[in-house]
Amino acid sequence: MSPPLVEVSAISRSYAMRSGMFGRATAVHAVDGVSLAIAKGQTLGLVGESGSGKSTTGRIVLGLEPPDRGEVRFDGKPMAMPATAAWRAQRARMQMIFQDPLGALDRRLPVATQIREPLDIHGIGTPADREERVRELLRAVELTPAHGARYPGALSGGQRQRIVLARALATKPDFLVCDEPVSALDVSIQSQVVNLLCDLQAELSLTLLFISHDLRVVRQISNVVAVMYLGRIVEIGSADDLFARPEHPYTQALVSASPAPGRRSAGRIVLAGDPPNPAARPQGCAFHPRCPRAIARCASEVPALSVVGGDRQVACHLVTGAQTRDAA
């Protein structure tokens, strides 16, 4: 396997939160000791519910936010200090796509101008080259120059997300962080954008960090999938294997909760309780209050992410390589 393009080692990030106007500030651990490696040209999918820290992880990986602890290495080098020339050069090689394309675009500028903006900022090519590149990018995302002359308000949701994608690709990045890129789109448009993303990735050998709550879309596009719960990775493994044979009780519940046409809800694991509050993190395994299989040890001891066989890693006291593989 080729060396990883992006290497994240044990990053943590916490925010101070006050309860009430005079309440004491408490630290909310949004991300807590997350390590990831993404090989060149591969896609890592990051799934989890709201508040699991998947977006914060994406922002730290991209250098939009510094980690409190831990380190992110890009192409073998640590992230440069923000606002330096080295940082800017590095940032041109990594881009981000957000969930809400209308919020990510300026409503008062024609979209072609917005696609050209990164080229202007990073000073890439002559003005004529840039115009040509914009036309090329519009073609790449299956739009026409006529679309480029329009304002974001005059485009549909799917077309806007294509424009955001074209703009992200303008500087020929190696690495793309996609944060819920298709969640706001209708099913038929979603599949267009997912196919486009797959095609462009193969064509440009992009490396992707794909963040989504939608297991189906994540499986479609990812090679490796990591499942997050309350700021930690609870399970990581190859996409097909992970969804076919989830080991962690939380992953099992997530997979079981994903509705499938043609399958009735018999045997579904319905978790009790609410999604966890990052400000009131349970002791021990963060999942234990909702876990149907929790034992006494889960309430006191935090399980470490450990290899259970093949490329699968699970953070659960009840899942150890030998036992579960034999049982299954």
């Binding site: 077309q159 038929s188 267009q192 997912v194 479609q220 969804f243 997979v255 046409p261």
Partner: peptide, 21 residues
């Protein structure tokens, strides 16, 4: 619509996208 839904198990296939809007 059904073809546009990525499967959660079995082999991966290219999604059948409905063109246009």
């Amino acid at each position: 619509l059904i073809g546009a839904l990525p499967p959660l198990d079995g082999p991966r296939r290219r999604l059948t996208a409905i063109p246009g809007t």
